[in-house]
């Protein structure tokens, strides 16, 4: 499968934002990610699909080194963002995560006000010089996350008081307030109802103009709706990656075919 990915990548023309080569992940004795090589493009949405436990979330968490927080987890291979190896000894994961933001499966607003939730990132990264700038960042981010109109009158109330969909959009606003270059989303709609899901999907589509977005999803339809490129994972291996249209209309692997037609999942 390794030779495959090189060929596939060669076929893409746009510049890669992130390149991963021969990535292996171990959880203690378990080999969770096996030799995955993948390119992720700038200003595009890449979807990771595959049956549960296939390693797509694990791989996503490697991209901003969230796996560092798990003590038994070990990562090998190379992941570069704009040519810089993120597993280089000199890299501070904190700086990396400012560049590669993340939105999680379950909305996890901080026990703070809506305003403070969004202002958190800019504050710790020292992005603003004064309160006016911070207000500006908060407002812009909430607007980008399509939440501004709903919360502008109650910025001081706790973020935990919002509905599930609003909370997830708050988390997206929080992530984009730090001005990341890449946005990782780990099944961002799995805890949301269909209406909220639609809102978030629409939002993802719009975010594409500014960020490189990687989304892990269980839903085939979602991948088809929001992504330009789709990567299929199975049992810790990358089956194939291609333009979304190609994957869904003319996959080159039988496993992908079976998965997208619902034979297993």
């Amino acid at each position: 499968m390794n030779d495959m990915s090189t060929a596939e990548i060669a076929a893409t023309t746009a510049p890669a934002k992130i390149t991963a080569r021969n990535v292996q992940v171990y959880y203690g004795a378990t080999h969770a990610i096996k030799n995955v090589s993948v390119d992720i493009l700038d200003k595009a949405v890449t979807a990771f699909i595959g049956p549960s436990g296939c390693g797509k979330s694990t791989f996503l968490r490697c991209i901003n080194r969230m796996n560092d927080t798990i003590s038994v987890c070990r990562v090998e291979g190379k992941i570069e963002i704009e040519g810089e190896d993120i597993y280089d000894r000199r890299v501070d994961p904190v700086q990396l995560r400012a560049k590669v933001g993340m939105v999680f499966q379950k909305p996890n607003p901080f026990p703070k006000s809506i305003y403070d939730n969004v202002a958190y990132g800019p504050k710790i990264h020292g992005l603003t010089r004064n309160k006016a700038e911070l207000d500006e960042v908060v407002e812009t981010s909430l607007k980008k996350a399509a939440l501004w109109n709903e919360v502008k009158d109650r910025l001081a109330s706790p973020g935990t008081g919002l509905s599930g969909g609003q909370q997830q959009r708050l988390c997206i606003a929080r992530a984009i307030a730090t001005h990341p270059e890449v946005l990782l989303m780990d099944e961002p709609c799995s805890a949301l109802d269909p209406i909220a899901t639609a809102q978030v999907e629409e939002l993802i589509d719009e975010l594409r103009s500014q960020f490189s977005v990687v989304i892990v999803t269980h839903s085939m339809q979602q991948a088809a709706r929001v992504s330009q490129r789709t990567a299929m994972f199975h049992l810790g291996e990358l089956v194939e990656i291609d333009a979304t249209e190609t994957i869904f209309t003319n996959p080159s692997h039988k496993k992908t075919q079976d998965y997208i037609t619902g034979r297993y999942g």
């Binding site: 993120i86 280089d88 000199r90 890299v91 700086q95 010089r129 001005h179």
Partner: peptide, 13 residues
């Protein structure tokens, strides 16, 4: 008007 984040190398602290 939002100031953009300076584009820094992640290799440099």
């Amino acid at each position: 008007a939002v100031p953009a984040r300076p584009k820094n190398s992640i290799l440099v602290e």
